[in-house]
């Protein structure tokens, strides 16, 4: 119940922000751009340890100040050389550019982001792959980032976001013999800091609108 409440409040807040921006910003010259890119992600500040991931994303820009980022990635974490924790994320974020003048040809374009994703987590014992557990869940994320505009169409993006999983947690008992990995019945606010380097190219405009 608690997680649905948090998720609903978060999404209402998110949509309110986007709507407010859409109403106050008349400059849509950059809206409609469809970008495609790849990303590498480092997962840190988690009970499980740190790991790296590979993925990709596309963006659809809604206005000069608001963009959307649709992503998927696969992250593998080594837990004390005993358990592999794998995350599959599919989700979306709303990107908001707070500085109107910091756009291409300016090199640095900072932004704020918030969004939601579905995530699947699987933990497997190194020694005995039959010892494993998995769960499917939902998560919310928020953070900051910056585009480095290399050309008018190509950017390198560095961002850091904290992702909170609103779901059951998997818990390995690595000292037990044999090892036990179980899904906790209680849901918890567990998360990790995801730092991503992404590369994006604006392919084409889905729509053309100059207001």
């Amino acid at each position: 119940m608690r997680k649905e409440l948090i998720l609903s409040a978060f999404l209402i807040f998110l949509f309110a922000q986007v709507k407010a921006q859409s109403n106050t910003n008349n400059d849509f010259s950059k809206s409609g751009w469809f970008s495609l890119g790849v990303r590498s992600t480092a997962s840190t500040f988690s009970d499980e340890g740190s790991g790296i991931g590979t993925g990709g994303q596309f963006r659809i820009q809604m206005s000069n100040r608001v963009n959307t980022d649709w992503f998927m990635d696969y992250i593998s974490i080594n837990m004390e050389d005993k358990v592999r924790s794998e995350y599959y994320h599919i989700g979306w974020s709303v990107i908001y550019y707070p500085f109107k003048t910091l756009v291409y040809p300016k090199l640095v374009q900072p932004y704020l982001l918030a969004g939601h994703c579905f995530d699947y987590n699987k933990m497997t014992s190194f020694d005995n792959p039959t010892i494993r557990a998995n769960r499917l869940g939902s998560a919310v994320q928020a953070g900051v980032g910056v585009h480095f505009n290399i050309t008018d169409r190509f950017d390198v993006t560095l961002m850091s976001q904290y992702m909170i999983h609103l779901t059951k947690t998997l818990s390995p008992d690595m000292d037990a013999t044999p090892m036990v990995i179980k899904a906790e019945k209680e849901t918890g606010l567990q998360g990790h800091l995801l730092t991503t380097v992404g590369f994006n190219y604006k392919i084409f405009k889905i729509w053309k609108r100059n207001a």
């Binding site: 890119g37 790849v38 990303r39 590498s40 590979t54 993925g55 290399i150 190509f154 390198v156 380097v197 590369f199 190219y201």
Partner: peptide, 21 residues
């Protein structure tokens, strides 16, 4: 897979890039 950035001069093409995989 990923993007490469090229510094070209006539037929010479020096590049650097970052590729996830």
């Amino acid at each position: 897979f990923g993007f490469l950035y090229h510094l070209t001069q006539k037929q010479n093409d020096t590049y650097l890039g970052f590729q996830p995989g």
